[in-house]
Write a protein that binds this DNA or RNA. Structure first.
Lengths: 233, 233
DNA sequence: GCACGATTGCTAGCGATGCTAGAATCACGG
DNA sequence: CCGTGATTCTAGCATCGCTAGCAATCGTGC
């Protein structure tokens, strides 16, 4: 048994090596440089071993993308909790609900800063922090972001079958956006809209389709238009 | 001379045939199906003729994308003028200014509907109409939109060297967004932000990353957060 | 009217891609 | 010490974007 376990462990390590090597190579030279031959040479194995681990090149990219969602969720969570205070999140909405409605619309009720500033500053800081972290994530890991959102399409996204890391990342956005939703606004759909806006800023900005100089200004405008007490709008 | 002109005309026609065939093929079977061999067979010529017209496959896609921007500008203009009234646009900002500030911030002053409704309904209808038209454009011509915004990167975008159709399309958005800009908001940068949000909705929606059912709701949320009299925000 | 010259388009092929079949090699169990 | 089974590699296929060099075609001048 021990010998079997060792082989499985080694195999898992090699699989992880493939994923991380593909990611590093893509980040260094772009996804076009990640060919099966090049990747095989990089991990010092021959091509077919890749296909003993993954169904094809697309599956490798999907694995990289999945790893990216784990990191994205962590980055967003760190940004949100760091700016928002000590509130430890609500645990997402995977268990139970399937639609995009959140269970905790009253998050700001427990925030000590909320009543002092007219419940604007805490959630607002969280929103800008999350938005900033999101675009920074995309800018610092362009190839990873590309694998997550532009290339790999074989990941189920907006469905209960979507992998947990995807929901985790979305839930972070949801927690940051929900306090800003008006009573007649569905927090889930509002989050989707905000997320799409961030995605647009990230992708258009990275491909040079938006002038890089005004990035901060655009981010501020976006959050300003989505944030603030809903009653004042 | 006449014979020379005929040849040039035939050559231009064939070039247009290449572009339109590439576009149709991409729209029908996706860009992966647009190989040089397949495209050559489709136009009933051999491969090398493609390279006598374009530098490579990328240049063909760029030509398709450029044609897409012409149509996009027309679609946006039709949507804006149709919803806004008879105002015949401001002619863009190519001549003169280079930064993203508009010359006509007082467009709504001449709108007869503006004073009657507290200058909210006309510009607001125009904004929603433009947003709707934009996402519909992307949804109805996915391959074309992909060529415009995801694939071809060799088009100069946010610079004076950008082709005229790109500026024309942007100017349509600018004209629709400018009336909603607060005094302290740069209309150009606000337009960039709004455009990015539309782009995010379009791309994420098309790849199945956003549930299609709520598309209309997301669009309404987006316009609601960007529109309205700036003073009320 | 006809041969010549230049332009145009084609056949054939190069290197590289993702992926796969079958040979060869290695490690383990008896 | 050797056979057996799994694992890894060598070699190759079909296809990709792209190009060199030849063939045919067309217009032009005598």
């Amino acid at each position: 048994m021990s010998i079997q376990e060792r082989r499985e462990r080694e195999r898992a390590e090699r699989e992880q090596l493939i994923v991380s090597t593909a990611r590093e190579l893509a980040e260094a030279e772009g996804w076009d440089a990640v060919t099966t031959r090049r990747l095989a040479a990089e991990i010092e194995y021959s091509q077919p071993v890749l296909y003993s681990h993954f169904k094809g090149k697309g599956a490798i990219m999907t694995a990289v993308a999945l790893q990216g969602f784990v990191e994205l969720a962590a980055v967003l969570r760190a940004a949100r909790t760091g700016a928002e205070g000590s509130r430890a999140g609500t645990g997402g909405r995977r268990a139970g609900a399937q639609g995009p409605q959140a269970e905790d619309a009253g998050a700001s009720a427990g925030d000590p800063r909320a009543s002092a500033e007219g419940r604007a500053e805490g959630p607002r800081a969280a929103l800008t922090a999350v938005a900033d972290a999101y675009t920074a994530f995309a800018a610092e890991r362009p190839a990873l972001y590309e694998a997550m959102f532009t290339r790999a399409v074989d990941l189920p996204f907006a469905s209960p079958e979507a992998p947990a890391p995807l929901w985790a990342a979305f839930d972070e956005l949801l927690d940051a956006v929900t306090p800003h939703a008006a009573p007649d606004e569905d927090p889930g759909i509002l989050t989707e809209t905000f997320w799409a806006a961030l995605h647009g800023l990230a992708t258009l900005g990275r491909s040079g389709r938006l002038p890089a100089a005004a990035h901060t200004t655009r981010l501020a405008l976006l959050t300003a238009h989505f944030a603030g007490p809903p009653a004042a709008r």
